[in-house]
């Protein structure tokens, strides 16, 4: 087992390195220059010298190999560098936003689970009845709607209906407060993006719950249980569900990994100052150093979750370890 873990860990290194090379090259392939954006972007008069000085100050004039060494070398010296836009340390910028993104991701996952598992079970138990169809239509609708569109409709709906019912238009807060400072304010801001994203992500998990459960229900031991005259509820709860959960948990874990990167659009719509918004801003500003680190975070989370899933499976099924 340890050997397998070590092997899988080693395999992460080329992936991470490859991603580092890729992001470094891709970013520099995209035409544009942070200093031009900063100075010329406002349409206001500016001094060409200001642009030259800016380029020099943030290190854009350094040779590319040196820039790459500074980027990758930072992981060994534990110095992620400074943002080219604000010239503040990247760790500080990320720290500011990490809690928010993580909270939304966790809340969205909880919402997704809360929707997906009951629906998946109902759908499987009532397979091919109108209930099954209704549930599936509901859950596929979640994945079919563009998330930004859903977000717009949610905010507009809140504004319009709160005014219609209570006289005053209400919208979720637009400044983040940590849950330990103001739990109600925090919740009333983040519940909406969590629902919008969670509903979307529930579709895949619901489908997985349904098919996994159906598969298990066809197994011999369930038939035996049925033959023994156990009531359906007990069969589902005690026997089938437990065995069907493995692929469901896996898919939720993988979705969670995607979620970190998938919040990009949601954070825009709800004005959340999280990593997704920082990412869009940094890309829009051509802030190389910041974008590089954010991409690496997304890649790292993805790789780690996949690693955890693999290890988990290997632990369950020893054959994998030796293949």
């Amino acid at each position: 087992m340890y050997k397998y873990i070590a092997k899988r860990l080693m395999l992460m290194i080329p992936t991470l390195f490859g991603a580092a090379v890729l992001v470094f090259i891709l970013l520099r392939m995209i035409p544009g220059d942070i200093c031009e954006v900063r100075m010329a972007g406002s349409g206001m008069y500016f001094d060409q010298e200001a642009i030259d000085v800016c380029r020099e100050n943030i290190g854009l004039n350094k040779p590319l190999p040196l820039q790459f060494i500074e980027f990758v070398g930072g992981y060994f010296t534990l110095d992620l560098g400074t943002s080219m836009w604000t010239e503040k340390p990247i760790t500080h910028e990320i720290q500011l936003r990490f809690a928010l993104s993580l909270q939304v991701a966790i809340m969205a996952t909880i919402v997704a689970i809360a929707i997906a598992i009951p629906l998946g079970i109902i759908s499987a138990v009532k397979q091919n009845t109108w209930i099954d169809y209704a549930v599936r239509v509901f859950s596929i609708a979640g994945i079919a709607m563009p998330s930004f569109w859903l977000g717009i409709l949610i905010i507009l709906g809140l504004l319009v209906y709160s005014q219609a019912w209570f006289g005053e238009p209400w919208m979720p807060p637009i400044v983040y407060v940590p849950p330990w400072e103001d739990p109600i304010g925090n919740l009333s801001q983040l519940i909406w993006p969590a629902v919008a994203t969670g509903y979307r992500y529930s579709a895949v998990a619901a489908r997985m719950t349904r098919s996994a459960l159906l598969e298990v229900l066809r197994e011999d031991y369930i038939r035996t249980a049925r033959a023994k005259g156990l009531i359906e509820k007990v069969i589902i709860n005690r026997h089938a569900l437990k065995n069907a959960m493995l692929p469901v948990v896996t898919i939720i874990a993988i979705e969670f990994a995607f979620l970190i990167g998938g919040l990009v659009v949601t954070e825009q719509v709800f004005n959340l100052n999280g990593l997704g918004k920082l990412f869009v801003t940094s890309v829009g500003n051509q802030d190389y150093t910041m974008t590089q680190q954010l991409v690496m975070i997304v890649v790292l989370v993805f790789v780690l979750v996949n690693f955890a899933v693999d290890i988990f499976y290997a632990w369950l099924d020893p054959r994998i370890r030796y293949s």
Partner: peptide, 12 residues
């Protein structure tokens, strides 16, 4: 290579 592409943010 596929790992890298899968993990890489689409927007970039």
């Amino acid at each position: 290579v596929m790992d890298v592409v899968m993990a890489f943010p689409l927007i970039i």
